[in-house]
Each structure stands twice: as structure tokens, then as C-alpha cells.
Amino acid sequence: MRTLIVGAGATGGAFGKRLIDAGRDITFLVRERRLAQLTANGLTFRDPSGESTTPVTAITSIATGTEPFDLILITVKAPALPAVIESIRPAVGPNTRILPILNGLNHIDRLSAAYPGQVLGGLAKIVATIDDSATVVQMTPLSSVTIGTLDGTEVDSKIVDNLSVNGLKLVVADNMLTRLWEKWAFIASAGVICCLFRANIGAILAAGGREAMEAAIAETERVAAAAGHPVSEQAHAMSTGMLLEEGSQFTSSLYRDLMAGDAAEAEHILGAMSERGRQLGVGTPLVDLTLIQIRAGGGSGI
């Protein structure tokens, strides 16, 4: 399969590296600056097992008349999505499948409106970043992607085969929308807890924050339940295990972005959760308070 990966950052770079190593046909769609880095130096990737550099094929635009790709992975952050929806259009044919790896759910609605019947659901579990030398750094062995159709039908076996490679655990879910809601509820509650109290989990618990933290978890899970996708007992246990662990140094990715002066996904994660709550008649007071704080601060961690 011809696969286009939109973005060669932490997630796109890590997944792309695994696919290239397995002999898959991979092209990256990136910005000019990233293209210059990849052209000059290749894709440098480091994980707990070591570091390597791989030549890659990368482009900054797709010409009209280009042969359609079979699979398009979208791995950029939410604010880039509107531009991506248009930029990939020449690469999309009638049999192309689009697999976005983004947080939340609004991107599914937008992509499905633009490309009806061609969008899959996807979520990633990976702890990765790009360092100052433009190296993609996977900090733990954890690297998995869960995919599934939005209507519960089977995923094309060619896509499953294409993504089944060493170093990347593939999970095929038959309840993908529920899985997406579960992750959204988790990252939204984690964002509320860390951004509202401006600390890691252990410090917030030590300061007496358990009751408020439990309320944040319950709040986002109520929205998921009202949407018809209640969080499973297993997913709830995972959330409480991570977000109520004494002494934990865990912080949410949204909080880390906020401290770096970039809260770009706050509206996609928390703003959209607040809006869904209003639409479903579910109050989200802690989400709303966190949004006010982030908006008033202009995305600054100060």
C-alpha cells in the first residue's frame, strides 16, 4: 500500500520509522522547515534500544493529478487540521482510507464531512517528542495504535497488514467510537486536573486535591455516557489509577504545552468537551473553569 503520513513529528515520525523499517511505501507530507531537516539529515529516531537515521521521502504539497494514496495517516495537532483537509485532497481517491491520530472527536466530524465513508478512527499510545536536534525520541517502549471503522464493520485486511510491523503494536477495535470517547474523557480530565491546579498529580494529591480530581474524572465521563458511549469499568480504572496515584510525577500533555506557552489544543480537547456537554445537557463546571484560566492567560504558563 502507498501510505502518506501527514506530519513527521513525534507520533508521525515514530510510526513512520517503524513502517519504513518494515519495507512499507511511506511518504511524509510536512512543512518546509521539516522538509529541509529530513532532506539534509534523514529521519533520526531514538528509543530505549538505540538510535538510527533513515533516508525518507518527504514532500510539502501534493500536485493535482497525483496517483491517490491507499492510506493517509494524519498525525498533526488539531489546529493544523483545516489546512490538512484541503492539502490532502489531491491524494484522496475513491478507495483511499484516512486514519487521523488526534485527540478528541471533532476532527472525525470534520474529516467525515469532507470525505464521507473514507475515515477510520484511530488513537495512539506513545510517549515521544522531538528534541532540539530534530531527532524523534520515543522515551519508553510503549508504542501502539488502535484503529477501527466508525460503523463497526471490519477494517480492510490490507490496512491491518500494512500497519502490522515490529515495534508498533496494532489493536483493531470493533467499538472504535467508544474507545475514542474513553481516551477523550481521560485526556480532558487529566488536562483539567493539571492545568487548573498547575502541578503534577502527586503534588495536587498532597495538597488535598483528591475530591476535586475525582470530580473532574466523573465530569468528563458523564459527557461520554450522555453521548451514548459510557466509559468501561476497565477504562475508568485506568484513568483513576493514573490520575489518583500518590507521589506520581504525571502531568498531562496539555499542561506541558501550557507551561511551554502553547495551549493550542485546549479548545480541541476542553472547548469541544464543554460544547458537547452543553449540547447533551450535561454540566461541565470544572472544564469551563479550566478553559477560562487558559483563555485568560493567552496560553501562557506564567
Results as ranks from 00 to 15, higher is better:
Arg2Trp: 05
Ile5Cys: 10
Val6Arg: 03
Gly7Glu: 13
Gly12Asn: 08
Ala14Gln: 10
Leu19Ser: 11
Ala22Trp: 05
Ile26Asp: 03
Leu29Asn: 04
Glu32Met: 02
Leu35Ala: 14
Thr44Phe: 01
Arg46Gln: 15
Gly50Arg: 09
Thr54Leu: 10
Ile59His: 01
Ser61Thr: 13
Gly65Ala: 11
Phe69Glu: 07
Ile72Ala: 11
Leu73Gln: 07
Leu73Asn: 00
Val76Trp: 04
Ala78Leu: 11
Ser87Glu: 14
Ser87Gly: 05
Ile88Met: 09
Gly93Ser: 12
Asn95Asp: 15
Asn95Trp: 02
Ile98Gln: 03
Leu99Ile: 04
Gly104Asn: 09
His107Phe: 01
Ile108Lys: 05
Leu111His: 07
Ser112Glu: 14
Gly117Ala: 09
Val119Gln: 04
Gly121Trp: 01
Ser133Arg: 14
Val137Trp: 06
Gln138Phe: 00
Val145Ile: 15
Gly148Tyr: 02
Val160Leu: 05
Asp161Ile: 01
Ser164Trp: 02
Asn166Ser: 13
Lys169Cys: 00
Val172Ile: 03
Met176Leu: 03
Ala185Val: 02
Phe186Met: 15
Ala188Cys: 12
Cys194Ser: 15
Cys195Arg: 00
Ile201Gly: 11
Gly202Cys: 05
Gly202Asn: 08
Leu205Ala: 10
Gly208Ile: 14
Gly209Thr: 10
Arg210Tyr: 14
Ala212Trp: 09
Met213Ile: 14
Met213Tyr: 07
Ala215His: 13
Ala216Met: 07
Ala225Asn: 02
Gly228Leu: 07
His229Thr: 03
Pro230Phe: 05
Glu233Val: 14
Gln234Asp: 13
Ala235Pro: 14
Ala237Met: 11
Thr240Tyr: 00
Met242Cys: 10
Phe250His: 13
Ser253Glu: 12
Tyr255Ala: 09
Met259Ser: 15
Ala264Val: 15
Glu265Met: 13
His268Gly: 06
Ala272Asp: 05
Met273Tyr: 03
Glu275Lys: 08
Arg278Met: 07
Gln279Gly: 10
Val282Lys: 01
Thr290Ile: 08
Ile292Ser: 04
Ile292Leu: 08
Ala296Pro: 05
Gly298Asn: 09
